[in-house]
Design a protein around this nucleic acid. Structure first.
Length: 107
DNA sequence: CAACTGACCTAAT
DNA sequence: CATTAGGCCAGTT
């Protein structure tokens, strides 16, 4: 099945996501870059899909500030609900202000 | 081992 | 600002 190296990458992604404080969001590209994998933005999504409790997956949005779809039932609504519960405000276009909420820890 | 897929990003038009 | 095209790389078939 999955190789050990692959698990290492996903673990690094989840570690970075776990560092994201409440009330802040981060893009897939940012997480990948902070984890040490500048071009692995897509793998972040794979890692988040495998993520369980303890990993705030709902704080990860795409570079547009929108919630990426995954084809599952109502998960996009759930993510928005969780973000609003943390104080994140969505605009009329259903996007968050990256300039305001984007997590800037160690750029 | 080759081809397809994807919770993406950036640049060009 | 909307749309298109290219790139990028691991996971799955």
């Amino acid at each position: 099945m999955a190789a050990i190296a692959a698990v290492t990458i996903r673990a690094a992604m989840l570690a970075v996501v776990s560092e994201v404080p409440a009330g802040a969001v981060a893009s897939y590209g940012d997480v990948a870059r902070l984890a040490g994998f500048p071009r692995h933005s897509r793998q972040v999504g794979v890692a988040l899909r495998e993520a369980g409790e303890g990993v705030p997956w709902h704080r990860i949005v795409n570079h547009e500030g929108r919630i990426s779809r995954r084809g599952l039932d109502g998960h996009d609504d759930l993510q928005r609900y969780l973000l609003e519960a943390e104080g994140i405000v969505f605009d009329a276009q259903g996007r968050v202000s990256l300039l305001q909420y984007r997590w800037r820890a160690a750029r």
